[in-house]
Amino acid sequence: MHLRFRFNKSGKVRFTSHRDVARIWERVLRRAGLPLAYSEGFSPRPRLSFGLALSTGYESDAEYLDARLREPIDFHDLPERLSALLPVGMDVTGVVEIPSSADSLQQAVTSCRWEVDVIGVDEQIAAEAVARALAATEIVVTRERKGKQVTDDLRPGVLALDVLEPTESGCRLAAELGTQPRALRPAELLNALEPRLEALVVRRTHQWITAGDERCEPLAIAPSPATSNIEVS
């Protein structure tokens, strides 16, 4: 049986790394007594796969995890049970069974929506920077990759960019950034804006799978009767 979980990550626990989160999940699933399927070989590991890594320090409402089980289980109460075992700041907000043929999260997800609290600028300056970026035909950056300088155009990855509202120390932006072939990270975009903006809090609000004109979140790919997509406030 293949299950897909959605969970959030906020507060102090956001300072745990992607690898730490993976280890936290392994322990939590074992504590919950789930019949995890293990890989073969010298060092068998539970067959878990996480989607796009969330940068350390970022918050999220939309993290996903696929877990393979040895046998079918009743999973309707899992969000509650697992949330009780997870650290403060991590809660499971949904779980569905997915077909074993489903694309991995890494392959399937096409974009992420982010909310970014930038500091030290007012709404107007931020709005100008956003407008300049959207008007540009290309946003070329150079970065180091495996010791070599490579140039990248970030513009195709910027699917949407807005100023949402003012905050106490600056303002909040919303951005939808593409993840294929390479996930564009909010920090990269902020660095490339004119003027360069600095983020205080970054929060992933959604991950989207787009196919043609249809767009759905990763839990929605399941055959609907088996879902248990509860909302946890």
């Binding site: 392994e26 322990r27 939590v28 699933l29 074992r30 504590r31 075992l85």
Partner: peptide, 8 residues
Amino acid sequence: GLERTGYD
């Protein structure tokens, strides 16, 4: 201990 911690 295993039950409480989830270690393997």
